[in-house]
Design a protein around this nucleic acid. Structure first.
Lengths: 229, 229
DNA sequence: ATATAATATCTGATATATCAAATGGATTGA
DNA sequence: TCAATCCATTTGATATATCAGATATTATAT
């Protein structure tokens, strides 16, 4: 039985249904700006573009609607949220609050062993800060956040944040073009880690929230300012 | 054009697609316990039970998966979250944080006119506290929270919270069986209102969060304790 | 020329059909 | 008796067909 569970978990990671592919395809197109705000997302068009039928497309659109990237008007269709950048901003505030909550719970619930693993991850991040491989650093940072989400031991929170994080992914790397951002970001990550290690839930929450909000301001200002990346 | 927008908004309220009906049907069945934790939700069975096809059922299940009430294993099917009560608890914490965020923004952004409307709503709630119509009070309370969500002027946050609130709805009325809860709840609502009126975002957020967390503790303890309602 | 009505086309919503994976049971062999 | 294997059935995943509402277009009347 325990074996089967492992098996499932693995399968969830591995098997990519057309529905998931459609979700990724549409979501990335919206976040990256390939699909313009207000654009009418026609089911048949999308399906044809991906070479699949409309059924998985419909399912993906429902999830995107729930995330808030698109709006559906009954009998009229689904449209890219008219203010995607506003939406992204809003989503990021939500992420800051929820990931702060995750940090709080992590500080309360994480085992000493798990905290050791987090320390290892932080050391890896410190190493990458010195290097020039910004993609690797972005991935390691993402992993750090994911580990904290897991430490919170909260399935609903984790899955919600996983979705939100996927939206942010495109932006995150852009932030790391800036050297100051790299060092500031690392210092903040270390601060969050220390609060979790020292079992200070309030502090961990506050630091995590502040970290995400500051990073978002940085990135979104960057985006508004023009094509910097 | 302005006319058309009104029209759309109205339609979103009025037109109930089979997809929405399916969502409500399944969600309420899970929250109320009619569908047991771990139960396999078979698409064809559900569709037949509702007298519709599987297409809208699939869409509803995807949304429920995103909310966190069900889990989907690829090629195996969709199951009611094994720990619905835990999930509800988690969802409520998320709701507390996000609705706190909404209160914060409301305190920052609401127009004086909107605050007057909120005051009217609060007066209506005070009136209902004195009466014995607990259903009406529950509805009025829900409206109060919804108004604050709207005042935050944040589409993504509003839609997320609307979904979350729907999950809570079934529980909320149960809370109001208790007289103490009625008066405590009203006092807390008034506190939130005053913070928003006085333009104190931090205070509004803290009060709203504390209010929701306290109510949830109350209700969920009640549920665990046995059939009190 | 403009407005209105009639019609054709498009598109979302839904239903049904098809395919393949997964499950359960029967059967066979040790 | 138990385990492994094969087959029938179930069921999720996907594709396609159908229906109805919405949009665009054309025709007609004023």
């Amino acid at each position: 039985m325990a074996y089967e569970r492992e098996d499932w978990a693995r399968r969830i990671e591995q098997v990519r249904s057309l529905r998931e592919l459609a979700l990724e395809f549409i979501r990335d197109a919206i976040v990256s700006g390939r699909f313009a705000p207000g654009q009418h997302l026609k089911e048949r068009e999308l399906a044809e573009a991906m070479g699949i039928s409309t059924t998985p497309v419909k399912e993906a659109l429902r999830v995107l609607e729930h995330i808030g990237l698109v709006q559906t008007v009954p009998r009229r269709g689904t449209y890219v949220s008219t203010a995607v950048n506003t939406s992204l901003h809003e989503i990021n505030w939500m992420r800051a609050y929820l990931e702060g909550l995750a940090a709080r719970w992590a500080a309360q619930k994480a085992s000493d062993q798990a905290i050791d693993q987090l320390a290892v991850q932080l050391a890896e991040m410190r190493r990458l800060v010195e290097s020039t491989d910004r993609d690797a650093l972005a991935a390691a940072n993402g992993r750090f956040h994911a580990m904290i989400r897991e430490l919170a031991q909260n399935a609903v929170l984790a899955s919600t944040l996983a979705q939100v994080a996927a939206v942010e992914r495109v932006y995150r790397r852009r932030a790391l073009q800036d050297d100051l951002e790299v060092t500031t970001g690392f210092a903040e990550h270390r601060g969050v880690f220390e609060a979790i290690r020292d079992r200070q839930p309030e502090l961990a929450e506050a630091r995590m929230r502040a970290h995400i909000l500051r990073t978002a301001d940085h990135v979104l200002l960057d985006v508004k300012g023009g094509p910097t990346g």
